[in-house]
Amino acid sequence: MSRARLALIAFLPLLAPQPALAEPAVETVTDDLHHPWALAFLPDGEVLVTERRGRLWRVDPATGERQAIDGVPEVDHRNQGGLLDVLAHPAHADNQWIYLTWAGRCDGGNATHLGRGQLEGKRLVDFKTLHVATPCVDSRIHFGSRLAFDRDGYLFMTVGDRGERDRAQDLADHNGSVLRFHDNGRIPADNPFVDQADAEDAIFSYGHRNPQGATTHPQTGRVWIHEHGPRGGDEINIPAAGENFGWPIQTYGREYAGPEIAPNEVEGVIGPLHHWTPSIAPSGMTFYDHATTPTWQGNLFVGALAKRHLARLQLDGERVVSEKQWLKEREWRIRDVELGPDGALWVITDHADGRLLRLTPD
């Protein structure tokens, strides 16, 4: 046998599928959830799940039993609207604060709202609206609405362009932006546009289309987001103070009818760390940072609605070096994914009979 053939045979095992990329085992914790939108963990391991029609559930992760939480605000449940994200305060064990975002009616239409209340058993008490992303718009789409705390304790909130793309370049308009607050809803004095008369103080970054994923990097403490493109051009970005992320003057996406919308690169505009073209319709995102599964450590997981899978992205710093599609054969619309305190990945599916799933190494 030739040396070349021996070398090829020696190399073949390296080409075989690696255990680190194996599909996970899937357990249904609870089902019959009506279009769930978000999930969040409490310090005791219980799970909070929102349904767009305006319900908030408290789920026992061991049994799947759930209790409805009262005190939720009235929502505008039409098309993409309704009760959206949920997030526990980093110090929830001490203060019991729970944050919600929702589509709510207001003058001239509706808007993405932010509020918080204290969770006492089966009820939110002292619930207050902290912010309304104005101006109100007569639209039923692109609410954005993901929440994340960075390492410094600032609360970030994403807001979509409401289907009116030029709003994302208008600093006098909250829509199409990432907003930044203190945990009580106050606007930080060092937000980038606080001293600019024709800009909204809450805006941290702008030029975003419809960001429906947000998570905090476990090492850097910075918030990462992803956002929907129109037909291609879904993006992963790291919001930066005062920066323009391009929509709609820079995008890899195309009009639904066909032509290009704008150049892929524009001077002075921040390009994406990663983009999906064609679109996967990303929703929900989390980093894996747990000792339970070392082969998943440092990976970024993203739900996909249109392409119906869970994307596993392996990173080298801020660069995506490989991507794997999990659960594709299940044909589930993955709406949200979170790392649980048990080291499992927890996922919700966006269907009229949606599921809360627990994913572990097979």
Rank of each mutant, 00 (worst) to 15 (best):
D336E: 14
L130R: 03
N299G: 13
D350H: 12
D31G: 14
L8Y: 05
R167S: 07
W247N: 10
D195S: 07
E46F: 02
D316V: 04
D70L: 04
G144V: 09
T293Y: 11
F245R: 14
H131M: 03
G121M: 10
D362S: 10
T50W: 10
D190W: 03
E267W: 13
R308T: 08
E265I: 12
I348G: 02
G232F: 02
H174C: 15
L155A: 06
D316M: 08
H290G: 02
G253N: 05
P259K: 15
L14K: 06
A344P: 02
V159G: 09
L171I: 05
Q118Y: 09
F41P: 07
L124N: 11
V321H: 04
W296N: 12
L130M: 08
I249Q: 14
T360R: 15
H174L: 14
M1W: 02
V75S: 00
H228E: 08
E27F: 01
L83V: 14
L305A: 15
Q314Y: 08
D85K: 13
R3H: 13
H228Y: 05
A241T: 11
K307V: 10
V47C: 04
I270L: 12
W296L: 06
R66E: 08
E227V: 04
A241E: 07
A133V: 02
L345Q: 12
I348P: 04
V26H: 01
P282F: 14
P211I: 07
E323L: 09
D60F: 00
H92F: 10
S177A: 15
F181Q: 05
I9R: 15
W97V: 00
A91F: 01
H228P: 09
M157N: 08
L83I: 13
F149L: 06
E260K: 15
N264P: 10
G82Y: 04
V29L: 12
E74K: 14
W102A: 01
D70C: 01
F287I: 01
F127Q: 02
R312H: 12
N244F: 03
H34K: 14
P13H: 03
I9D: 08
S145W: 05
H174Q: 11
G104H: 03
E329F: 02
R123K: 13
T286N: 04
W326D: 13
N264M: 15
H113I: 01
W346F: 05
S279T: 15
H77W: 07
R162N: 07
T286H: 07
D70W: 00
N299F: 00
V86F: 07
A304H: 00
D316A: 10
R151F: 00
H35M: 13
F127D: 01
E243P: 01
V125P: 00
F41E: 11
T112M: 07
R105H: 05
N264W: 14
T292Y: 09
E164K: 13
P19H: 07
G109T: 00
L114S: 11
G81W: 06
T134N: 09
K328R: 14
E120D: 14
S2P: 04
R358A: 10
E46H: 13
F193N: 10
R165D: 05
H217C: 05
Q18M: 04
D70I: 00
G268H: 09
G121Y: 08
P43Y: 03
A68D: 05
A214L: 04
